[in-house]
Design a protein around this nucleic acid. Structure first.
Lengths: 364, 364
DNA sequence: CTGAAAGCGCTAACAC
DNA sequence: GTGTTAGCGCTTTCAG
């Protein structure tokens, strides 16, 4: 046998046998489990020479700490649960990126589940994560009111951070953005460019298809954006007829129909505020279909930046949100709460309007 | 009341606020832990009436199974580790969506880590997941050759599925797409439309910036796509000068530079094949900068569909890949391997060319 | 059908 | 400094 260059210690490790446990390391190093644990864990007092012997033994056995046993013993899993609508949606994907990385930095793990904004799946997800004994929860709640499942989970109920959306009547940490101001800024820009007929294309999962009135179960983010937009329109003395507002499910064909319905009204708006990337895409699709040129016939502002927004012709004006920071803040807040037992707090991050070519100036 | 003859381990249970354990349920139902476990777990033989008593007790105590203890005892965590480059990238986000959902359906959980295609982070991720004692691993390997970390993890080494990329000299399951054919199809389409000067914008994390030659560490997917493209060009009798090929890091400013460098060559290609969404965006950015109109001055085909591709003007032709199916296949294959101990297998899914407006016909 | 008891692998008192 | 030991909460033989 031409033994490999990887030294003989690989053979001694775990070929065929089960993975080495702490007791195996202890035996090989001729110390007790406690001493081995101390040496490896880097706590307590261990003689220098002993520590080296243990470390060597661990390496030679290819020893790996069993995190399950550690979690069981310690009563902490160093894992947090993340409950989002849909990880393939770019907002949640970016937030997840931040959450996963921040967790990893802090020695935590993220367990992610999707709900598609279905409250039943959300309840189930929370149940599963509670059984997994996660140390905390980051939740994007699908409902403003239906939050009993966030309360009845004992200790965990005080280790929750809500992301992007708030819920009613619950003392819980939240990380959101100033969506009201974001919407106001967007409208203000359109108004400043001379637009007087401005439509709203609003994403809401509470909607089955699309419609002209806000679903009763709309989440806080939607409410805030609509409120901000209406506020700005009112201040500008501009009307907002029902025909120019559509609340749509987050589904391209449906969004496109919703946008077509706005653009088919008489008189037609000259500008549209889309409350998320998918709404913007739907608006684009509708414009294509009607032969309307964005940036010339129709002005468009969208919430949330996408790599595509910048390179389209015309480039799309957007209300940027600090998504990565939101995810990061959610994790750090949560970990503070887990470790320090601090009180829940509400974090609201600013939005930023980026003006590009899709908002043209109306001739007066 | 709940006190009983149950051995001397009758400590001050202080059933105040701590979560109920199995023993609490057992006591309340006046049965042993074993019986309670059988009743709740739905296995073994339990009297009908006993079962009801246990279920009632569990509900009344708001009992939740402790998955950590179960995992420890069973030697299975029902968790799988997922190691991807970047969950915020739309390909990985979609794959993750499929993975998470399929896992959930099967009673598994996904632990996701990002590597940014950094081999050191990949090694660390695998280590952490091995310590967490995941039952299996789905990995998007960042390197073709460097895979020792996938071997030295005992039992886990035989419970790995590689996603989207293969590695050298390792008998491991893979789920990939027929990228070679995808690239061939794309080139064939361009050739059929009369394009004779076709450039390649190739994404590869092995590249620090961008360059004209393939980095030695390029992953299998990149190699396949380039090979397919070259094959098709050769068959068509078309040249591929170095000036028309750029291997670029997956980073918009750099991709843009790479695309500019292709488009700045003399003679300039009339068509570009972009090997992923980010490359397509970079190509678009470069065209914008040069005042070149896609679909008129420059034809573009990209790998991977995006919701934006369809609504751009012009709509972008793409090589679609069944991303959701890839993720799903990875999980089902992995779980088969975990549960059945079946041999590794290679799954290759087909790509599909979708012809849209970005590929115009050259006048001859 | 049900109960008693032996651990899974680790850590943290507490002893020496 | 180092060793002994008692569990964390659960499942699962093996008896009865």
């Amino acid at each position: 046998m031409a033994s490999s260059t990887i030294s003989g210690e690989e053979r001694e490790s775990e070929v065929g046998s089960r993975p080495a446990r702490l007791v195996d390391v202890a035996r090989l190093a001729k110390v007790s489990r406690a001493t081995a644990a101390r040496a490896l864990g880097g706590y307590g007092f261990v003689g220098e020479e002993t520590r080296e012997r243990v470390t060597a033994a661990a390496r030679s056995l290819n020893y790996r700490l069993n995190e399950v046993a550690r979690a069981m013993r310690a009563g902490k899993t160093l894992a947090i649960g993340v409950v989002v609508a849909d990880i393939s949606n770019s907002f949640f994907a970016s937030a997840a990126r931040a959450i996963i990385d921040t967790c990893a930095e802090q020695g935590y793990q993220a367990l992610i589940l999707n709900t598609d904004d279905d409250i039943a799946r959300e309840i189930e997800a929370v149940r599963v994560l509670a059984e997994k004994r996660v140390d905390g929860l980051i939740v994007v709640p699908s409902s403003l009111d239906h939050n009993a499942h966030l309360r009845g989970i004992g200790e965990l109920s005080s280790r929750i951070v809500l992301l992007d959306r708030r819920v009613a009547d619950m003392n819980v940490s939240t990380v959101t953005t100033d969506d009201r101001k974001g919407a106001r800024d967007a409208i203000d820009l359109l108004v400043a460019r001379g637009h007087t007929r401005i439509g709203l294309l609003v994403s809401t999962v509470a909607a089955r298809t699309y419609g002209a009135t806000m679903p009763r179960l709309a989440v806080s983010t939607v409410r805030d954006r609509v409120a901000g937009a209406k506020e700005a329109l009112r201040q500008a003395g501009l009307p907002l007829p029902g025909a120019w507002v559509r609340y749509s499910r987050n589904d391209l064909p449906i969004v496109t129909q919703a946008a077509l319905s706005i653009l088919g009204s008489e008189p037609r708006p000259t500008a549209i505020l889309a409350t998320c990337e998918e709404m913007a895409i739907g608006a684009l699709a509708a414009c294509r279909e009607l032969g309307l040129v964005v940036g010339k016939d129709i002005a468009l502002v969208s919430f949330d930046e996408s790599p595509w927004s910048r390179v389209l012709t015309p480039a799309i004006s957007v209300v940027q949100r600090p998504i990565y920071e939101m995810g990061r803040a959610a994790v750090t807040t949560l970990i503070q709460q887990i470790q320090g037992g601090v009180a829940p707090k509400a974090i609201e991050l600013p939005t930023m309007l980026v003006d590009r070519e899709s908002v043209f100036a109306m001739k007066r």
